Amino acid sequence: MSGLVIPTIETARLRLRRPALADFPAFEQIMMSDRAKYMGGPFDRWGAWGMFCHDIASWDLFGHGGLMVVRHDGVCVGEVSINHGPLFPEKELGWMLYHGFEGKGYATEAAAAFRDWAFATLRLPSLVSYFDPANTRSIAVAVRLGAMRDDDAPRQDAEDLVYRHHRPV
């Protein structure tokens, strides 16, 4: 995918942009915290770095990856990603917000914008989101996005719930 341009996506309140090295400390902090339990963590520093690099390398490998979620005042509030590779049975739409930015609609706004970009640009028929059953806040975001639970979908972990986002017709 040489020459690939990683998009910048604008919404009413947010800019979704390529990750930069300066974004790693906040990313590392959440991935090493108890909040990462819904994503297979908490992770050590090596694991956090590997996940951060995965989100960047996926752009070259698959034509999609992670984007940082930044308010228009410049504050980075989290990340949204389309994950794939050997650890993901299907292309996954994922999101996470940093501490203190939950409950403001940022995850829904960012995930909707990235989902719409993926359907328009990558021409995917659907995306999935994988959830620990206890991650009720992220499941609620998926439902607000119109995703439907898909109990027949392959999953990363036998305990995961899978919600499917269908491409609009």
Score class of each variant (00 low, 15 high):
Ile30Glu: 01
Glu10Ala: 14
Leu61Gly: 07
Met148Ala: 15
Leu145Ser: 08
Val80Ile: 09
Met96Ala: 11
Gly78Glu: 00
Tyr106Arg: 11
Gly103Thr: 11
Phe101Arg: 00
Asp60Lys: 06
Met1Cys: 06
Val77Met: 08
Gly3Phe: 13
Asn135Phe: 07
Asp160Ile: 12
Gly41Val: 14
Ala20Asp: 08
Val70Asp: 11
Pro133Val: 07
Leu67Pro: 07
Met32Ile: 03
Pro154Ile: 04
Ser138Lys: 05
Val80Asp: 10
Ala107Val: 07
Ala140Met: 02
Ala22Phe: 03
Pro125Arg: 04
Phe131Ala: 02
Leu14Ala: 08
Asp157Gln: 14
Ala112Phe: 08
Leu14Gly: 02
Ala113Tyr: 01
Ile82Cys: 04
Gly47Asp: 10
Val77Pro: 06
Ala107Ile: 12
Pro89Met: 06
Gly105Trp: 06
Asp34Val: 09
Ala113Glu: 05
Phe119Ile: 02
Ser129Lys: 02
Glu10Arg: 09
Arg123Tyr: 00
Tyr130Met: 13
Val80Pro: 01
Trp117Gln: 01
Pro125His: 03
Pro133Cys: 12
Leu67Tyr: 12
Met31Cys: 15
Tyr98Asn: 08
Glu28Asn: 14
Leu87Gly: 15
Ala118Lys: 04
Val70Trp: 08
Gln29Gly: 09
Trp46Gln: 13
Pro7Phe: 03
Ala140Lys: 11
Arg18Leu: 08
Glu79Trp: 11
Gly94Lys: 06
Arg164Gln: 07
Phe88Trp: 13
Arg115Asp: 07
Leu161Phe: 11
Ala118His: 11
Ala112Glu: 12
Leu127Lys: 05
Met68Gln: 14
Arg115Glu: 00
Val80Glu: 00
Thr136Lys: 12
His72Gly: 05
Met31Asp: 14
Ala147Arg: 05
Arg18Ile: 07
Met51His: 13
Ser2Val: 14
Arg15Asn: 02
Leu145His: 12
Leu67Glu: 04
His84Asp: 10
Asp151Asn: 12
